[in-house]
Amino acid sequence: MSTHHTLLEVEHLTMRFGGLTALSDLSLNVAAGQITSIIGPNGAGKTTFFNCLTGFYKPTEGAVRMHHPQHGALLLNEMPSYHVARKAGVVRTFQNIRLFPNMTVLENLIVAQHNALQTASRFSLAGLFGRAGYKAARQQALEKAEMWLTRLKLLDLADTAAGNLSYGTQRRIEIARALCVDPLLICLDEPAAGLNPRESAELNELLVYLSREHGKGVLLIEHDMNVVMRVSDHICVLNFGNKIAEGTPQQIQQDPNVIKAYLGEEETDEKVAA
């Protein structure tokens, strides 16, 4: 474990909406090159946690610290949401897919490289006059997009409108788009939802590839235990905004608190297919 340095440190994170405490005193470390999963029944605060990480919500208390190899320690909770991806290299996907539906798959991936391209185009001036520097940057962007499209088996669909494709394909596009930002940490919100078993197996393989081969940190919210238990290095279980357990898949499967939260004494959650 010690070979994987800590990428993200979450300290005493609390998020309240009026009287409702969606997250309370959550602390968690996410390592580079590893897959960390957040699981928990519906309404446990998982997506709220993502929103706090990625600047969409300002947490009521606590800190989220990103250890960036170049920029040092960055406090994500004090950044505007677009800085989280741009400066800290933390990119997320959404539970209800958010693509640019009328744009082609390739355009979706090019948009993701906006910041690099915009700088290369000297805020459009070099671009307008077709300067060589910009052309090279553009070529690079296309190559990167092509690489991820190939890796995610989307190459044939590159020039079709993203909104017209099937659910499972749209999920893959969203992941490919996030990867085009070159994230250090990629946060996936239920990437396996709506996938068939074959697609789900491919997703597992991709997640392992990203963490092992590319050394990216992967943070995963997932209900599909087939995915979670097979690929996770580390699992954190949330229930009603509290962390009730943390550990390896084996530890989690045997944890009495987790079993109680999922199978419950009074309430059962049907969503969980263990």
Partner: peptide, 8 residues
């Protein structure tokens, strides 16, 4: 929202 998440 997606744009913000991509760092724009």
């Amino acid at each position: 929202v997606a744009c913000k998440a991509l760092g724009m």
